[in-house]
């Protein structure tokens, strides 16, 4: 490989009890690349995303992020589990946006964004506040800085969540179905922010059901089903001419749902 991968996952396995959710996932994501994970519910895409920043502990395989092995250190051929503090340090490099936003409800939009830079990175309050205002401006919420999450719409909350993740200057952004909990008319504003972020060169891994977003924004699409990668390739190719029967079935199911939305009662 010519450029070193930012994310290098090899044969990742994960089970919950007896249920094997990931059955050997390999994935490479280069710096600046936007990768969309598509696939039916229960295919393991969210679980894989959560393994990358160690919200889930993997049972087998390895994940490297920016050349660093996630969760372990290898010395003289033996693996040593990293202490919590070192894992927290690894997570600082990775921003995550959740399906259900998970903003801190007891803090304003501004405080949500400044919390981690001041408490984790030790930035001064003034510096963090200045940067937070810039980020809120960037996601189009400059006027909402003093609002509590409960006073914001779902789309606004998700945009604050994106600003909150960006405040840590991550090398990689993970999006876990960022628009799935939103009313249809609020989806666009979040996707627009994500597209701008992609255009600015951020490395992104996005779990989504928004096929149009994947086609237009992603460099590469990875289609997962049943805990394995079924097919991957350039976004336009996988979405227009899927090779695999399962990919075709999934995409046509999604399209027929979208058509039903567009022509109500048809």
């Amino acid at each position: 490989m010519s450029t070193p991968s930012l994310v290098h996952a090899v044969n990742v396995h994960k089970s919950f009890g007896r249920n094997e959710v990931l059955k050997g996932i390999d994935l490479d994501v280069s710096s600046g690349e936007v990768v969309c994970l598509l696939g039916p519910s229960g295919s393991g895409k969210t679980t894989f995303l959560r393994c990358i920043n160690q919200l889930e502990k993997i049972d087998g395989g390895r994940i490297w992020v920016d050349g660093e092995l996630a969760g372990y250190v290898e010395k003289n051929g033996r693996l040593y589990t990293l202490p919590d503090k070192a894992i927290a340090a690894q997570r600082r490099e990775i921003g995550m946006v959740f399906q259900r936003f998970n903003l801190f409800p007891h803090k304003t939009a501004l405080e949500n964004v400044t919390e981690a830079p001041t408490k984790v990175k030790g930035q001064s309050r003034a510096e963090a506040t200045k940067r937070a205002h810039e980020l809120l401006e960037r996601v189009g919420l400059a006027e909402r800085a003093d609002h509590y999450p409960a006073q914001l719409s779902g789309g606004q909350q998700q945009r604050v969540a994106i600003a909150r993740a960006l405040a840590m200057d991550p090398k990689l952004m993970l999006f876990d179905e960022p628009t799935s909990a939103l009313d249809p008319e609020l989806v666009g504003e979040v996707l627009r922010v994500m597209r701008e972020l992609a255009d600015a060169g951020m490395t992104m891994i996005v779990v989504t059901h928004e096929v149009a977003f994947a086609r237009d924004v992603a460099d590469r699409v990875v289609f997962m089903d049943g805990g394995v990668v079924v097919e991957e390739g350039p976004a336009a190719q996988v979405i227009r001419n899927p090779e695999h029967e399962r990919t075709r079935a999934f995409l046509s199911r999604i399209r027929s749902q979208e058509e039903q939305h567009e022509v109500p009662g048809a």
Binding site: A88, G95, F98, K119, V120
Partner: peptide
């Protein structure tokens, strides 16, 4: 306090004690 609050704080790189003190206990 919702489990998502722990996850959001951890994803931002907060340690367990910072998460407890700054995010979970106030709620």
């Amino acid at each position: 306090v919702d489990q998502g609050q722990h996850e959001a704080a951890h994803a931002l790189g907060m340690s367990k004690s910072t998460t407890m003190r700054r995010i979970v206990l106030p709620q």
